[in-house]
Design a protein around this nucleic acid. Structure first.
Lengths: 335, 335
DNA sequence: CCAATTTTTGTTAGCGTTAACAGAGACGCC
DNA sequence: GGCGTCTCTGTTAACGCTAACAAAAATTGG
C-alpha cells in the first residue's frame, strides 16, 4: 500500500526550481524572490505536497515532536495537563507523543524516556509527581531538553509546578477565616510531591494561626479512600472542618458524612483541590482550589522550547498560583 | 547540544561486522549466526546504541508511531480510551502521538490528520463521535491504515465501538424490571453517535415493553446540564425513573433532585453511563453502565495493526458490550 | 559601463537506516 | 573433486530532506 506522496523534488520540478529552493520556502529562509516563493507555494498546493518529517528529523537530528511521560492519564489533573500541553504544542507546530507508564519507578520512566529518545523527540516533559521518578531523571542524557511538571522541588532540573503550598494554605485559611478552631486534612499518597506540598501548606496555615495540626489522614486520591477517611471523621464530634487533597477524596468524605447524618456545611465544612468540572454539582457544591493547568502547560512548553532553541539546559523553576473557588461546602461552625 | 549517540556503523565496527548485519540482528532476521548475533548484541549494549527511528521511518516509509485524533481528552471516556490505547500500543512497540482537536468539524480533523501524516505515522485512530467528523474521514487518503472509535455506524470505515444501544437497553430494562411504569432520559448532545445510540437503546427497551417513550431531555454531558434537566424532572411528580447518558449528567440530576427534596432512590431511581471511578461515591451510589475501554482499545489497535501488516483496508466492524453495574440509586417505585 | 558586492538560485554531500543484490563459505550429491 | 544449493555476510544504492558551498543574477558604486 502506501502510494507515497510527492517529494520535494516533484514540487521543485513543477515550479521550475531546485529542490533546495523549495526547502528554503518551506523553512522561511529570507533570500527567496517573492515571485519564486509564490510559484513554489502554488506547486505545493497543487500537488498536495506534505514535507516528510522523518527525513527532516534525520538530517537535523530533531523531530518536531515533544515526548510526554506521564502516569495514569485518567486522573483529572494529568489528563487536563496533557490536553493543555498538546494544545499549546500544536500552536507551536509540535506534535505530542505520550508515553504513559504504570509506575513512576526508575525503570519505567527510563524505558519511556528511551522510547522517546529513539524517536529523536525535540524535548521531553515529565509529569513526575513522585520521589522515585527523580533519580531516573538525573541519570538521563544531559543534552536532551527536559522539563518536569509537579516534580521534586529539590532536584536541579527545570521544573514547572502548581503552587501546592499556597493553594493548601488558602484552602485552610478560608476554613479558619470562617471561624473553625482547627482543620483536618485528608492527604494524597505521601510519595507524591503534590501531596507533600498540600500537607505543608495546610500545616503552615495552622501553625501561623498558632494551632497544633492534627495528624493528616492519608488517602490515595480516590473517592474510595476519601470515603474511608470520611467514616472516621464522621465519628469524631470535634471535627468541624476538613481540607482534602483533591476533589475526589472530598466526594468520598461527603458521602461518608452524609451516611452518618452529619450535614455539610452545617456541621462540617469541606474544601477540596482541583476544581473538577463536577465539583460544582456535588452535594453540596464543593469549595475547592483551582490550579491553572493551561498556565502550567504554557510555562513548561515555553521553558522546553527555550532550551531547544538556545541549547542551554538552565535549571529554571516556575510556579503557577492556584485560585480558591468558594462554593457552598463551607460555613461557620455551630456554637 | 545534542551529542549524537552512536549509529549503526559504530556498533558494526565494534562487533567487527557490517552495519547490515547489525540491522539484521535488530530486525530479527533469521539468517544470522548465533555467535554473531551475540557479539552484535554485546556491542549494542556496550555503546548504549539506540536505533534512529527517523532514519528507519524514512527508508521504510512508516514510523512506529500511531496517531490518535481525539476531541476533549479531559472527558472520562476519551481519556480512558487514550490511556488504554497508549498502553496497548506500547506493548506492540508503537508510540502514540496525540492530536487533540477543539472541534470535530471537517477542517479540524483534516488538519490533525495532516499533521500525523506528515510525521508518516503507521496508522491513525480517530475517536470521532460526531457526525461532522465522518465526511472528513472519507476524503482521507485511502492508503492510510485507519480505525475509528465510536464513529458513524453507517460509513464504510473500520469501526470499533461500545455497544451503546445494548448498554442503554440494559439500563432502561433494569429500571423497568424494578417496576417502574416508564423511564425518562437525559441524553448527551444529539450530534454524538454515543448519544444517538443510547437514545435508541432506551427507546427500544420502552417500545419492547409496550410503552410510549417520553421526550428525551437533551444535555451536553456536563453535570451542569444534568442539573438543569434535573430541576425540571424534580417538578414532575409522575417521574420515578431516569436514565442519563453519562454519570456526570446523573450527578447533576442527583443534586437537583436533592435540592427539591426528592429522595433517590425512594422517590426517583437514576441510572448513569460510563462508571466513572467516583460513581460508587455519589449520593446515593450510582447504578451505571460500564463500557470496557481496554477492550475497545485492544480491538481498535489490533484492527489497525492488521491493516498495517496486510496492507488491506478492510472495513471491519467490532462492537464491545458494556456491563450494567448495579448500585443503590435504583429501587422499586412507591405505590 | 565595469568591477565589487549583494541577493538569489543551484549543486553536492551526507544524515542512519533498510532493501536488493552479490559474494564467500559450508555442505551434500553425483 | 566439481558443482549446485544452502546459509551467512558484505556492498551498494536509495529514502527525502538540510547544510555547505558554488555559481549565477541582480544591484550598487565609482
Amino acid at each position: 500500500m502506501a502510494v507515497h506522496g510527492p517529494a520535494m523534488t516533484d514540487v521543485a520540478r513543477l515550479a521550475g526550481v531546485s529542490h533546495q529552493t523549495v526547502s528554503r520556502v518551506l523553512n522561511g529562509h529570507p533570500n527567496v524572490r517573492e515571485q519564486t516563493r509564490l510559484r513554489v507555494r502554488a506547486a505545493i498546493a497543487e500537488l498536495g505536497y506534505r514535507p516528510n518529517g522523518a527525513a527532516r528529523a534525520l538530517v537535523t537530528g530533531r523531530s518536531q515532536v515533544i515526548g510526554v511521560v506521564a502516569q495514569n492519564t485518567t486522573l483529572y489533573g494529568p489528563a487536563s495537563l496533557l490536553a493543555a500541553l498538546e494544545q499549546t504544542a500544536a500552536e507551536e507546530g509540535f506534535a505530542v507523543s505520550v508515553g504513559s507508564v504504570r509506575n513512576l519507578d526508575h525503570r519505567s520512566i527510563s524505558a519511556a524516556v528511551e522510547r522517546h529518545l529513539s524517536h529523536r523527540v525535540a524535548g521531553i516533559v515529565v509529569i513526575a509527581p513522585v520521589e522515585s521518578a527523580g533519580e531516573a531523571l538525573e541519570r538521563l542524557p544531559k543534552d536532551v531538553p527536559l522539563v518536569t511538571v509537579d516534580g521534586d522541588p529539590n532536584r536541579p532540573v527545570p521544573l514547572v509546578t502548581v503552587d501546592q503550598v499556597a493553594g493548601a494554605r488558602a484552602a485552610t485559611q478560608h476554613l479558619l477565616d470562617a471561624g473553625h478552631r482547627t482543620v483536618w486534612h485528608v492527604s494524597g499518597p505521601t510519595d507524591w510531591f503534590d501531596s507533600v506540598g498540600r500537607i505543608d501548606g495546610w500545616r503552615q496555615a495552622l501553625l501561623a494561626a498558632g494551632l497544633d495540626p492534627p495528624p493528616p489522614m492519608p488517602g490515595d486520591w480516590s473517592a474510595a479512600s476519601g470515603y474511608r477517611c470520611g467514616q472516621m471523621l464522621a465519628r469524631m464530634p470535634e471535627v468541624t472542618a476538613v481540607f482534602t487533597a483533591n476533589d475526589h477524596l472530598a466526594l468520598g468524605v461527603l458521602r461518608a458524612l452524609h451516611e452518618f447524618g452529619r450535614r455539610v456545611p452545617d456541621e462540617i465544612s469541606v474544601v477540596g483541590f482541583d476544581d473538577v468540572p463536577e465539583a460544582a454539582y456535588f452535594i453540596p457544591p464543593l469549595t475547592t482550589v483551582r490550579p491553572d493547568f493551561d498556565a502550567v502547560a504554557r510555562a513548561s512548553l515555553q521553558m522546553l522550547l527555550s532550551q531547544i532553541e538556545s541549547g542551554t539546559g538552565g535549571a529554571l523553576r516556575q510556579t503557577v498560583a492556584p485560585a480558591l473557588v468558594a462554593r457552598q461546602s463551607v460555613a461557620p461552625p455551630r456554637h
